[in-house]
Design a protein around this nucleic acid. Sequence first.
DNA 1: ACAATAATTCGATAATCATCGAAATATCGA
DNA 2: TCGATATTTCGATGATTATCGAATTATTGT
Lengths: 115, 115
Amino acid sequence: MSNAAFTIRALSALAQEHRLAAFRLLVQAGADGLAAGSLAERLTIPASSLSFHLAQLTNAGLIIQRRQSRSLIYTADYAAMNALMGYLTENCCAGGDCTTDTACEPQLVDERKVA
Amino acid sequence: MSNAAFTIRALSALAQEHRLAAFRLLVQAGADGLAAGSLAERLTIPASSLSFHLAQLTNAGLIIQRRQSRSLIYTADYAAMNALMGYLTENCCAGGDCTTDTACEPQLVDERKVA
DNA sequence: ACAATAATTCGATAATCATCGAAATATCGA
DNA sequence: TCGATATTTCGATGATTATCGAATTATTGT
């Protein structure tokens, strides 16, 4: 039973320009993650604003924070991301003509032609 | 090249209790869709409130409206949904240790032990 | 044309959210 | 311990969002 409350929080967290951009940078950064300062620089927003957004993403369970010396490093939580995807596609196409269509295939996840 | 503006609008549209519930009902309903009145009844919210939410979902391109006699029938737009998924998982795990992890696998889509 | 049905738009109100400078907290190197 | 660096918390302000009754628009059958 997927949790609707988690889903709402996750979607709310991602439904904002700077947070979506930050999350995507973290997804691309992989396990190394990125420091808050680095994110603020790339997004060109004040540190306090970014901090607010990172708190939302953390609160939603989408990113994880760890300290490394003076910096706070953030990483994407892929498991949470997958849980979100799962909830959104759950019971997809019960109507019946999904199998013959472009619809509801998780194929896009494989499209990472990444290194 | 996925459009960030579309993604923000789609996520904002889904990041609300009643809209997420409505969208999920439509996803399950398939091509037949559901009338506005039927949705209002199932969600137990006033028609005017629902109408506001359906407008947001339509505006975000996530659902499609068609008229059938006196009723307006809404259906989920699966292509838009897939575009959204694609954008969210784009460049997933560039960090490198994704292939060895739990990360970025679409496996959760199968976790629906619903019914 | 009229009454009934189905849904949207309008408008006011309450609630939540984003922004960012200033102050506070944590860590490190000397 | 002191100064510098990295980041968060606080607080005030402006902006956006959700709610829902009443009025409006669209469609149908008679």
